[in-house]
């Protein structure tokens, strides 16, 4: 188990020499203003090495510099999905979002929902679950202490441990579960085509509801063959062809 952990850490910090080269080449291409070149190299990195928040962020910047705001937004969102606390990505995402055509008021969520949402967002779902796991074992430890040391002053400590650790575990588990559920709900995509028509049904013959433009983030609620049932930020719903949307 320990070795596995070390392996994971090493893989996380040390890059293969080739990838490191590609990365620095991409960055210097960006600095020289050769954004096309930078885009190609960043994509190559993602393809060969897997996902990384920093690479998505830089790729988003390269797209932004070429005024391809839809793609920039997509990659900022991807960077934030991998690393929620990446403030630069948040900042640039806001700027990119201010450059797209569709502006709409997001729906107002109930204040309690926002409060709960913010709590669950403090940690990743698996981190919450890990805390719950620790809490569970502490509570069990308290139980064992209680059984073994009933007649000693430790008895009181044991009872409190069971009580507090137990309640805490249940709460943490609830948050973890909720956070996971919210994560699932956040399946979203970015419009990649200059204009996209939101339809009332998953077919070309259905009524045209809205005209949307590149860069808008849509929540994905359902899929039907090559159609997606999506929610606009202001809460309106409709169907779009899945080819026009890039999932985050």
């Amino acid at each position: 188990m320990k070795q596995l952990l070390y392996l994971f850490l090493i893989a996380g910090t040390l890059l293969p020499v080739q990838a490191a080269d590609t990365y620095s080449n991409a960055n210097s291409a960006y600095e020289k203003g050769q954004y096309d070149e930078a885009v190609t190299l960043y994509h190559q990195l993602l393809e060969e090495e897997g996902e990384a928040a920093v690479v998505h962020y830089n790729l988003g910047n390269a797209y932004f510099k070429q005024s391809q705001y839809g793609k920039a937004i997509l990659h900022y969102e991807k960077a934030l999905q991998l690393d929620r606390k990446m403030n630069d990505a948040k900042f640039n995402l806001d700027i990119a979002n201010s450059r797209i055509r569709d502006k709409m008021e997001p729906i107002q969520q109930p204040i309690l929902y926002i409060f709960w949402y913010n709590i669950t967002r403090l940690l990743y779902p698996h981190q919450w679950a890990l805390l719950a796991l620790i809490g569970g074992w502490v509570a069990l430890g308290g139980g064992i202490l209680f059984v073994l040391k009933r007649h000693t002053p430790l008895r009181r400590t044991a009872v409190y441990t069971i009580l507090y650790a137990g309640i805490l575990t249940v709460m943490l588990a609830a948050i973890a579960w909720s956070a996971e559920a919210m994560e699932q709900q956040q399946a979203a995509g970015i419009i990649m085509e200059p204009t996209v028509i939101l339809k009332s049904e998953p077919s070309e013959n259905s009524t045209n509801l809205f005209i949307l433009h590149e860069g808008l983030k849509l929540r994905i609620l359902d899929t039907d063959n090559d159609w997606l049932y999506v929610a606009m930020p202001d809460g309106n719903l409709g169907w779009v062809r899945s080819a026009t949307i890039a999932r985050i």
């Binding site: 928040a53 719950a132 796991l133």
Partner: peptide
Amino acid sequence: APRFRRGAGETISTNLLL
């Protein structure tokens, strides 16, 4: 330096931890 992560899945499954 980027930290690459293979695959799109979470590091550990939340449900397993729960």
